[in-house]
Amino acid sequence: MSNNVTLRLDDVHVTYRVFEERRPSLKDLAANRFRRAAYREIHAVRGVSLTAQEGEVIGVIGGNGAGKSTLLRAIAGLIPPTSGAVYAVSQPSLLGVGAALQPSVSGRRNIELGCLALGMSRKDLAERFEDIVAFAGLADHIDLPLRTYSTGMRARLHFAIATSIEPELLLIDEALSVGDSEFRKRSRKRIEELRERAGTVLIVSHNLRTLSRMCSRVLWIEEGQLVKDGDADDVLDAYRASGDGDDD
């Protein structure tokens, strides 16, 4: 394996404020002298440093609220780190769960708009369109609005769009868990292809068996800090031994 670094995190901290559920009305604001009163500061990521190389598929594990999703969002450039720095070869693609793209328009239109938004040219789009439809397995539904799709179908479409631009860095936040076994097989193959093309993939999952099958390396995060970073099986064994794993 070559030693080209694709991603480096230097002591990354992310703190964000969580406000009350609804936006304050003018009355609330006046009562609090125009300060938004009720918020909590969440120090979600506390000093994570790591280096990833091309061809690595890295699993990320940890309990709910450990800071895994926040870490991926910071790597993708969606939230600014409070301190520290993230360096990457190119803009990573982040795949999350529950992402809806555009619910009211057809799958076809979503593929067009999604690929163009990610910077694909019209020509590339025309060339890859059939592949994307085939990969998502949506040939029969492609002209129906997205809101008629099942959760799994939407996840498949989203995965197909996000990986069609062949990102050098792919971040997957639980997005594989909603697909059926057929799709999981296909997505594993796509991840393998990305890896072989010298890409780097980070996968957040609670499914330890999937991780041990796909990853060479695993990061274990608790309370925003790296507990362990190393060979997949070693870290997964330690995680299981701690009693947190739900290996089924």
């Binding site: 694709t6 991603l7 360096y87």
Partner: peptide, 18 residues
Amino acid sequence: MSVATPGPPSGLKPMSVT
């Protein structure tokens, strides 16, 4: 970027939101 942090490895660029 503060002075303390080492520069990026060659070929990498800092990810920034803006």
